[in-house]
Amino acid sequence: MIEKIFLILMVVLALITLNTVKLRRAVIYLGIFSLVSSFVYLLYGAPDVAIAEAVIGSALSTVLYLVALKKYQVFTIYYTNANYNEIHDGYIIKGRAQILRDVERFFLKREMEPQIIYTTDDCDYVLSAKNFDLLIHQDYDKVKMYGCIEDYHVDAMQDYVAKNPYENLTVEFVRYEAGDQIDA
């Protein structure tokens, strides 16, 4: 009985790890997978294998994967909304703004890791205080994107939006100089 539950857990975790697109999620799933698998080794009476799996799978391979992911560029995207009551947990799980989904797919296609941070803070506050690559501010059907003027990824994004325009959204790009943000 107990073996069956943990074996099913292992299969589910392996499938999830293979199916996810974002690499940092896959690292977390792999950590859980190696924890569960070494418990299964214990159940079948192999404590030496289990201790090796715990050391290698849970600590060493996590560090190795993270060092490898350092080469993979992380693109930080902040998302603010004018009526900030809309950003809640259920909205993030099911609703998801259409523009965000497209932005995410665009950066995944260019082999970069988009990290979307939802915040209910004011747009101006995020502009002055936080360190970001792209800021998306949505006010019903008006979308403003703030990006650095030297960032060529934002250039590509601008071209992409100009080529396939939205019917119900108006997207506007605001570019700032690089020096404005650093001292803030």
Binding site: R24, V27, I28, G31, L35, A54, V55, S58, A59, T62, V63, L66, L69, K70, Y72, Q73, V74, T76, Q115, N131
Partner: peptide, 17 residues
Amino acid sequence: LGFIGTVLIARFVETRG
């Protein structure tokens, strides 16, 4: 070891890589 993994991933996410 579980603790080391959690702290490393959390710090990795916080400082953008």
